[in-house]
C-alpha cells in the first residue's frame, strides 16, 4: 500500500510501487488533469511537481513520491487562479488543450525560479513540452504575462 500526499491530501493507494506516478494519479486516484502523451519523457504532457520540482510522472515510479509533496494541475492553485492559469485564459492560449496542463506545470517551476524570464529562458525551460496544435507563441506570451501578474500580486501582498 502506497501512501501519497497529492495536492495536500493523503491517499492510500493499492498499486505496485513501480507503477508510474502518472497512472496512479489517473487510474487509482482519479486525477486526470495530468495527461498521457508518450510514456517516455519526451512530450511533457504528464509534468507534475514533486517537492516543487517539475518531474515527468510517466517515468517517475510512484514509490519515489512517497514522503514527498505531489502537486498536479488540479492543486496548482486553490481556486484555479494561478497567474499562469489567469494568463492562459486572458490570451486564450488553448486549441485542443490536451498538452496545456503539462505546459502550465512546467512554466510554474520556471516562474518560481525566474521571476522575469526572457524568451530564451522560456525556450530553454519549455523545450520538453510538445504542443501539436502549435500554440507555442501564445504560451510564450502567456508566461510573460503571468510573470507580470505574479509581480503585481506579489507587490499587493
Amino acid at each position: 500500500m502506497l501512501s501519497l500526499n497529492i495536492n495536500k491530501k493523503t491517499y492510500k493507494v493499492d498499486a505496485d510501487p513501480d507503477t508510474p506516478l502518472l497512472w496512479v494519479l489517473r487510474d487509482h486516484v482519479g486525477l486526470v488533469g495530468t495527461k498521457f502523451g508518450c510514456g517516455v519523457a519526451q512530450c511533457g504532457a504528464c509534468v507534475v511537481h514533486l517537492n516543487g520540482e517539475a518531474v515527468r510522472s510517466c517515468v517517475t515510479k510512484a514509490s519515489r513520491a512517497e514522503g514527498k509533496q505531489v502537486v498536479t494541475i488540479e492543486g496548482l492553485a486553490e481556486n484555479d487562479d494561478h497567474p499562469l492559469q489567469k494568463a492562459w485564459l486572458e490570451l486564450d492560449v488553448s486549441q485542443c488543450g490536451y498538452c496545456q496542463a503539462g505546459q502550465i506545470m512546467s512554466a510554474a517551476v520556471l516562474l518560481k525560479e525566474n521571476k522575469k524570464p526572457t524568451d530564451e529562458d522560456i525556450n530553454d525551460a519549455m523545450a520538453g513540452n510538445i504542443c501539436r496544435c502549435g500554440t507555442y507563441l501564445r504560451i510564450r506570451d502567456a508566461i510573460h504575462l503571468a510573470a507580470d501578474i505574479q509581480a503585481k500580486e506579489g507587490a499587493g501582498k
Binding site: 494541475i73 484555479d80 492559469q85 485564459l89 488553448s94 490536451y98
Partner: peptide
C-alpha cells in the same frame, strides 16, 4: 474559448 477554464484547471474533458 468556452472550455478554456476547464482546460487550464485539468477538468476531465477528453476521451482518455
Amino acid at each position: 474559448n468556452v472550455e478554456g477554464a476547464k482546460i487550464v484547471s485539468g477538468k476531465p474533458l477528453f476521451g482518455l
